[in-house]
Nucleic acid binder design. Sequence first.
DNA 1: AGGGACTACTTTGAATACATTATTCATTCA
DNA 2: TGAATGAATAATGTATTCAAAGTAGTCCCT
Lengths: 235, 235
Amino acid sequence: MRGVLGQEVVDYVRELILTGTLRSGEKIDQQALGEALEVSRSPIREALVVLSREGLVELIPRRGASVARLSPEDIIDHYALFGVVAGRAAALAAENLDADGIAELRAVHARFLEVGETVSEGADPEDASLVPALLQQLNHDFHRIINLSAPGRTRWLLRHLEHSVPTSYYEFANGWNRAAVDHHAAILAAIADGNPEGARGAMESHLLASGEAAVAELVTRGFFEAGAGPEEEAV
Amino acid sequence: MRGVLGQEVVDYVRELILTGTLRSGEKIDQQALGEALEVSRSPIREALVVLSREGLVELIPRRGASVARLSPEDIIDHYALFGVVAGRAAALAAENLDADGIAELRAVHARFLEVGETVSEGADPEDASLVPALLQQLNHDFHRIINLSAPGRTRWLLRHLEHSVPTSYYEFANGWNRAAVDHHAAILAAIADGNPEGARGAMESHLLASGEAAVAELVTRGFFEAGAGPEEEAV
DNA sequence: AGGGACTACTTTGAATACATTATTCATTCA
DNA sequence: TGAATGAATAATGTATTCAAAGTAGTCCCT
């Protein structure tokens, strides 16, 4: 993961796992992966170490790597943790965010609402394919502004939690997400009011709901269907 | 980090960093490290990836690894995060821990108190060197029993937070720690009472205090004294 | 004398090679 | 017939080699 190659491998394998192409428990062949990406095993191995620290891959000495067996409960739990940490950031934002930051937050939220309403009315069909990416970007900006109020270590952990597991990845894959906007509105209101506990609670609720949505999406992608892994239990 | 060598390297370098032998920002030479441990650079590189994901090492492409520049604020923040997550586990324990678990928790706490009082009275001077390790073990057991009530992902994150930065590592290095016992007593009482919010708050307070203690200990070890790193700022 | 460019050296990142361990499949014995 | 043992095969972990980027030191020019 030092140079560029390892990072590419990380992204590639993460995509394979999160899209359900590689299934839960499935073995990951280093040599096959290396041939597929036309790189040697050195960057492959470093990438697998990264993914194992993220919790997406299980590494067993002398037995190699396999896709981690994540249950729906694990995903829910992960989002709950994410909520607890992001809630801390939101509480700090309610205490510390200055007027400029709040204005910026309002602007992003307004744009978010605008794009969402437009698409829900069925307009702009010609560039409809761009909408999910745009919504995801605006969603990301919204959270980033809040998280900037938090100390460095909290931001560090939030970055890791965000990548460790399917998070906002899918939230807007299927278009407009009404619930997310309401949640964001509540978070924004609490922060603007300087209400730390309100912001914390709103953020936690938001991520709990996101977790349930993510599980639903992952189910449709066959994420939880176990592949033929070495740990596979016979029935 | 696949085989056993990588893990040894991780433990070795972590020790160097946490004891202050390697100082903040100092460059880590792969070849020198390999010669010191008599292993090749392959496991070294994988170990450095692990440590970079833990936040103890900073990895810059084509420039190699250096000890992460952690400030006292980072350590405090880290403990606050630890507290938030451990607080969640404690709240769940207050809801879910059965009678056996509570009894076990009481037993560990009683033993903890007993060992501590003994040593504070100056008794058992012949095996005094064993006391810190014993206290640390009992402290660990106490938290482990609580954490077992939490879902898998929460336990996973707690494990990582525990290793990522000097945590309970030093708490009992200097012998008896009166404050920790009072904290544990409060946590135990809240859990036994089935009081989730009380347990959460007690756990958070406990770790905030631990964070301050850890910073004090790290200061005496010269942890925050910057070494001659590549990013070193000229005054 | 100070600054910049060129060269030599060091160190990293990636690929290949080697050794050891797990897995598989066939054969044999109960 | 089934389980167990053993060799053959495949894959992992580690070491070594090779190429490219970075660093430092010197020399030259202004």
